[in-house]
Amino acid sequence: MEAFYEWFRWLYDDTGINLVIFYEQYERERFVDGFLNTLYLSVICVFFSVVIGVVGAWLQGSKLKITRNIVQGYIQFFRNTPPLVQLLFFYFALGTGLERWGLMPVYDAGGWNEPMIGNFGWAVVSLSFFAGAFNVEIFRAGIEAVPTTTKEAAESLGYTRLKSYIYIVFPLAFRVCLPALNNNLVNLVKTTTLAYVIAVPEMMYTVNQIWSDNVNVPEMMTVLFFVYVALVGVLVIAMGRWERHMKIPGYGQ
């Protein structure tokens, strides 16, 4: 392993290509931390955004007008504002406001406040709801693609609205909307880079600091680029497999 690291030091000395994250332990740890934070943030946000999508799509079909309006309001709010603005708004305006009005518990950690939701928390909230808004619409498209006759058949068999959603409508809808969901989740993983504006130490933030300290902007840009290609690639492959795995012969093919 040490020889591998040393090879990059040699590369720098010989060619001027400075991949400091390989041969300097401090920078390597920083980079790995950044990568893990990006991974962690992505996984959590993907999970919550899908949950929000599923629940939201179900609520959208509610008989109560007020529920439908609330879901619609949520979608409009999150879909029509840039995620960057949302992050800043949540962290600096809403977060601070909630603390000031005493709506969010805060404890004094000796000179600074440790709020219940910190910058990482707000990034999760903001990004999950942002992607979730799109997911609701994606799932709605899937649900609407399920033939009314199928729903009526379920009803005639005695399924309640919830049961028919869980066992009949959703499984079919899910298969229809997987490609669109796939796109949105890929977008979500890429959008996690924006969390650097509220100082979440994800990969973009870390790499920015590394290239500022080592003046190796082109090298680190390239590293960042390829790490994202790999990260999103893994997600795409996994989703593709899932799609194939859930394939029903004769349905939507």
């Binding site: 800043l88 600096f92 000179g111 910058n119 504006v197 100082a199």
Partner: peptide, 21 residues
């Protein structure tokens, strides 16, 4: 270090008590 993009945000975070200095 909790680093922000601009000075204004960093100072706001200090004022909000998100960091000790």
């Amino acid at each position: 270090i909790v680093a922000f993009v601009g000075n204004a945000e960093a100072k706001q975070a200090l004022k909000d008590g998100r960091c000790v200095a």
